[in-house]
Amino acid sequence: MSSLTMTDLAAPMRALRLLAADFPDLPAVNVAISRIYPGQLELACHDGFDVFETWRQALGIPLESVTYTELEEVPTRVLEASVDYAGIQLCLIGYSRSHHPVERQKAVA
């Protein structure tokens, strides 16, 4: 991988600044900017799906573009969606504890 500079991360940082200015009253979320994906900003909601839904609506992400998965290792449900925002890919992720752990299927020989 070539050596990146902070300039290479400027686009997601600008997008984060816009989010803070445009949506100051929305719930705080975890934010990730990575040099591995310099054109991406990740917002992670660990406080349940209500926070995810608030952000999804504010960002205008269509409900049909949201994917749902369950983690088998831990009883956690995950919602994910992405949208182009301010010239970057914004990834919105929501985590919620599952009330019913996923049952693992065991193959019978």
Rank of each mutant, 00 (worst) to 15 (best):
D25S: 14
A81W: 02
Y95E: 13
P62Y: 00
T54C: 07
Q57T: 06
S34E: 10
D22Q: 08
A32I: 04
D47Q: 14
Q57A: 06
D47H: 14
Y37H: 05
G39V: 05
M13Y: 03
E64S: 01
V74H: 05
D84M: 00
P38Q: 07
P24M: 03
F52I: 06
V29W: 04
Y95N: 07
Q105A: 06
D84C: 03
G94F: 00
A10S: 03
T54A: 14
G94S: 07
D25W: 02
P24K: 14
E72M: 11
A107N: 15
Y85D: 07
L19V: 02
A86D: 11
F49P: 02
E73C: 08
R17S: 13
T69I: 14
A21L: 13
S65E: 06
N30S: 11
A32G: 02
Q57G: 10
I93H: 05
R77C: 08
L59T: 14
Y95I: 08
P38G: 04
I33K: 08
L92V: 01
E103A: 14
V108P: 01
E53N: 05
A20F: 09
P62M: 03
Y37V: 06
L18I: 07
I88C: 15
S2F: 01
K106M: 15
M1C: 15
P27E: 10
D8W: 01
S65H: 11
Y37K: 02
T67I: 09
V108H: 14
A32D: 11
L19H: 08
P101C: 12
E70F: 00
T54M: 09
L79S: 03
I93C: 00
S82Y: 01
M1E: 15
N30V: 04
P101L: 09
E80P: 01
Y37W: 05
G48C: 10
T7V: 09
D8M: 09
E80W: 06
T67Q: 08
E72I: 04
V78M: 11
I36N: 12
W55Y: 09
S82I: 02
E80Y: 12
F52E: 04
V29A: 14
V74R: 03
L90A: 11
Q89N: 06
G48F: 10
L90Q: 02
E64V: 00
G39C: 01
Y68Q: 12
K106I: 15
S2W: 02
A20L: 15
Q57W: 04
C45P: 07
L18C: 09
G48E: 07
V66K: 00
D84P: 08
V78N: 01
L16S: 03
A86K: 08
A44R: 11
I61T: 01
A81R: 05
V78Y: 05
P75K: 12
I33T: 11
E80Q: 13
E70V: 13
Q105E: 09
L79E: 06
L43Q: 03
P101T: 00
P12L: 03
A44D: 05
A44N: 11
Q40I: 12
L79Q: 05
A58N: 04
